[in-house]
Each structure stands twice: as C-alpha cells, then as structure tokens.
C-alpha cells in the first residue's frame, strides 16, 4: 500500500501521471451512495450463499470497470445519479426481503447498477493521474467494500443475524430513497 501510495514514484512506461492510487482508493468511499450499494452487494451475496457469494463481487467490479470505461471514453450514460440512488433502493430491498432470484437475474441486477457507479467514477477521474494506479486503487477499494459486506453478512448463519441483515437492508434502502429524492430534486 505504501509502495502504491507513494506519489514520488517514477514510472517506467507511458502513463502521464505520477499519482493516482490514493485517488482511486478513496474515490469509491468518497460518497455514501456508493458505499451503501457496494456493501449491500456483499450483504446480499452473503444471504444468497455460494456461488453468488463470490459471483456478485466478481460481477460488480467488472461491470463497474465497464461503466468507468464508458465514462473515460466519453460515452454518455443517462440518469447516472438516479441509477446510483436506485441501486441503493433495489439492493437494499433485495437484502430486506432476503430475495433469492435466479442466479442470472441477481448478476444482471448487480451488473446493471454497477455500470452507473462505474460511469460516475470514470467521468470524475482527476486530471494528471496515472490511469493504471487509479484503476488499481479503485478496484481494490470496491473489492474491500464488498468484502466488508460479506464479512458483516456472515452473521446470516444465526437467527438474530438474519434479522440484523434485513434491518441493514432497510437502512440501505432508506439511504437509497434519500439519494433518489436528492437526485430527482
């Protein structure tokens, strides 16, 4: 982490920026709307169990990277802020209801919302940063948020834990509704 975070590194190849890792690392945790959705992915994965326990945290960063790629290359995705807010509502609702849709549907839900989160990150990339280091920080941070959700989700094995997770889902959904009202306002 120290190595990656050092801003004084010189790079061997052609990236123009010298920094970026800490920007990438901090970006996904810079907004509560992002945090809620990413932790909810981990919580939902914990409720769904294997293989979606690890399938969702694989799908989300990949689709988020796809969304970020669209943002970096200048492609517009309509309603990004609304999509991000809706992701909190939908994922929170899934956790609250302990929904168990077919695998493809769960991956589709997570993947579609990940595009909105990724697009927001891709278009907000600060100038003069190293793309590779930013990407590394960005993906690690997202993965760690999922891992935190999965870690919290391990309480699912206990009866009270299941209730706690559903309560957490309600909180995420409430946060999503708040951000949705703000995005629409």
């Amino acid at each position: 982490m120290f190595y990656l975070g050092s801003q004084s590194l010189l790079f061997g190849h052609t990236d123009s920026g010298a920094g970026g890792f800490t920007s990438g690392l901090s970006h996904p945790v810079g907004g509560l709307d992002h945090i809620l959705a990413m932790v909810a992915v981990g919580l939902w994965g914990a409720q769904l169990g294997s293989p979606l326990l690890w399938g969702l945290p694989i799908a989300f960063p990949l689709m988020m990277a796809f969304g970020a790629a669209l943002g970096l290359m200048g492609y517009l995705v309509p309603g990004v802020e609304i999509g991000i807010a809706l992701s909190g509502v939908a994922l929170g609702l899934m956790v609250l209801l302990e929904a168990k849709p077919p695998r493809w549907a769960a991956i589709l839900i997570v993947g579609v919302f990940a595009i909105f989160h990724g697009h927001a990150h891709g278009t907000e990339l600060p100038a003069g940063q190293s793309g590779v280091l930013y990407s590394i920080g960005f993906v690690i941070s997202t993965g760690l948020l999922h891992a935190a959700g999965i870690g919290i989700g391990t309480v699912h094995r206990w009866k009270q834990g299941k209730l706690f997770l559903r309560f957490a889902g309600a909180l995420v959904m409430g946060g999503g509704i708040y951000f949705l009202i703000r995005a629409l306002g």
């Binding site: 960063p61 990277a65 796809f66 790629a69 290359m73 200048g74 793309g131 930013y134 993965g143």
Partner: peptide, 25 residues
C-alpha cells in the same frame, strides 16, 4: 485466486479505456 483475477480484469479494462480515451493516455 479467481476473484483476484477478476480484479485484474477490471483493472485491465480500465487501463485499456484510459489509453483509448479521446484525450489520449
């Protein structure tokens, strides 16, 4: 290990987009 690979793929995709973006790498 496979999750780490997916992280690698995500980083690769972002790097690819970074190098292909209109402003250049």
């Amino acid at each position: 290990a496979r999750v780490l690979g997916s992280w690698g793929a995500a980083i690769g995709l972002l790097s690819l987009a970074w190098s292909l973006r209109p402003e250049g790498p």
